[in-house]
Simulated assay, not measured.
Amino acid sequence: MTIHHAMVLAAGLGTRMRPITETMPKPLVKVAGKALIDYALDHLQQAGVTTAVVNLHHFADQMQAHLKSRDHPRIILSDEQAALMNSGGGLAKGIRLLPTGPILVMNADLFWIGEAAGNKTNLQRLADFFDPARMDMAMLCVSLARTTGHNGKVDFQMAEDGRLTRYQPGDSHGVVYAGAIAMHSSLLDDAPEEAFNLNIYFDRAIARGRLYGLELEGHWLTVGTPEAIGEAEDEMRRQGVIPANGNL
């Protein structure tokens, strides 16, 4: 199925990206000449998303000015300038601005490269994979070997059918959460009004056997520190996404 609505989590302070984020929000940091937020929004647009909520806090005025330049997807702003809501609180607040139904969720500091031309995109595959009758959430996941900029932590053990549990040392098929989710917005109908971490809902879904993962096609890049910018660009050059001495 095509999922037409999404949220991008973009309100964090970007403390690990300092000193860059002392003058700008992390989602506007450029990799190969393109802002991180635009990689996320482009992934969503390519998957068929027509409307995306983006939450704002750190240097919100810069984010607003930048997002005005986009026509697709249509952007709705979720204002967190008064108080940061953490990942779960920010998502619960933001999706109230969308119609009830299936949504895609993406973090704003990551993207991927190397999807095969002519195939469905990773987010289209994730939307097709998501089955609300069996799943609370379907996560895009990636093996550690196909990551750049990651801290080396493995998040989940993936069963043959895609069911996820928390990773334990020695598990046979450990994967990294790739920062993208398909879910139904009603999952957060019981969410608290205050800030909370989305991991609460991950663990609830695991307890019910309803957290599933789909492996990403290609290579995953996360950009959380100044050093990670160059690492991401180097990987993009290795894979031929950008010229040896240039930007996109």
Rank of each mutant, 00 (worst) to 15 (best):
E233P: 06
A117I: 11
M85I: 08
D79L: 02
F130S: 03
C141S: 14
G246Y: 10
Q157H: 15
A6Q: 00
S172K: 15
I229F: 08
F129R: 15
F111Y: 05
V29M: 00
I113T: 13
Y167Q: 03
V29K: 00
R210V: 02
A117M: 03
M135D: 13
D61T: 01
A117F: 12
H58D: 09
I229C: 08
A178H: 05
V176N: 00
G48D: 05
S172E: 14
L198M: 13
G213Y: 11
M106L: 15
S69N: 12
E215M: 02
W220E: 02
T225N: 05
H150F: 08
A159G: 12
A159N: 11
L248K: 10
S185A: 12
H5M: 09
V175I: 15
T51I: 05
H43I: 02
Q239S: 11
A244L: 15
V8C: 07
V29G: 03
S78P: 04
S69Y: 04
V53F: 06
T100I: 14
N247T: 14
V31K: 02
V223L: 12
G218V: 00
G179M: 06
F156Y: 14
N245C: 08
A82P: 09
Q46V: 10
G101A: 07
Y212C: 08
P243D: 05
L126A: 03
I229Y: 09
E22H: 11
L9Y: 04
N119M: 13
A60N: 01
Y201T: 01
Q124P: 06
M137S: 06
E233F: 02
Y39M: 02
